[in-house]
Design a protein around this nucleic acid. Structure first.
Lengths: 127, 127
DNA sequence: CGTCAATGTTGACAGCCGTCGATGTGTGGC
DNA sequence: GCCACACATCGACGGCTGTCAACATTGACG
């Protein structure tokens, strides 16, 4: 996987950069920071994986919970989870034999913030 | 462009299907409906194009307004605008020689709705 | 009607991406 | 120590995607 794409640029924080798209034109640098997260969820399997993790008890799930929901091979699911993790959308935590993936609320808020109408009301995450 | 991907499935409405990802696991069918919009903005050029249109006066802009912001060729910009349009994110309107692209508020609201925390507070755009 | 300006379409090509089978790594149990 | 299990990594392959140059189309304007 090349360093030039698919991974968030080092030093840039996609969580604090996210002003609504409608407020002002997003800069190329900001775009490059947010795009990896968007690419991560712009795939049916990964979108479902994220939704499964988010809606699972405690906002976390282990790979063994997720696998049965798909017709894909285990390496493929593992690959997709890696993409979700490297984009900053989910955290990884190993507990014994199992690995748990945990959704990051800040990342969700950052995504939602991109699409707010920017007319009066704001999401809880601008500060 | 194959019909199996990149285009919203006929008969499905991505605007009304969008329950927050965290409320319940999104179905494969729902995922297939939303993914084209996500794919559309999961590209630096297209994300910037959408932001430029959204933040432009009246939420609309003609191609000639957009071209100067990029180092890409005109056919490439035209291609990206086509993707944005076919995904349902922007509308097209021809006025004389110029073509205007207009952001669709419902689509923005649908995107924002995907990422709402679904715990009490909601975004200003769920109607 | 001919020309120019603005935009879309086509065809081609290189690079990326999703998928798999095979294999590696670490953990717990007997 | 050894085996079974959960998960990650690797290498390969086919299809999709972003990009461009060349060309087509449409409308304005003399």
């Amino acid at each position: 996987m090349s360093n030039s794409e698919g991974l968030v640029p080092p030093g840039a924080d996609p969580l604090t950069c996210c002003v609504p798209l409608s407020r002002e034109p997003i800069s190329p640098e900001q775009a490059a920071t947010v795009v990896p997260m968007l690419k991560a969820i712009a795939d049916p399997a990964r979108l479902r994986l994220l939704s499964l993790v988010l809606s699972h008890e405690g906002g976390e799930a282990c790979v063994c919970d997720l696998l049965p929901h798909f017709d894909l091979s285990q390496p493929t699911i593992s690959h997709h989870l890696k993409v979700l993790h490297e984009s900053g959308l989910v955290d990884r935590e190993k507990r014994g034999t199992w690995v748990y993936y945990i959704a990051r609320p800040e990342a969700m808020a950052a995504m939602a913030g991109l699409f707010t109408a920017d007319t009066g009301a704001r999401t809880a995450v601008d500060a």
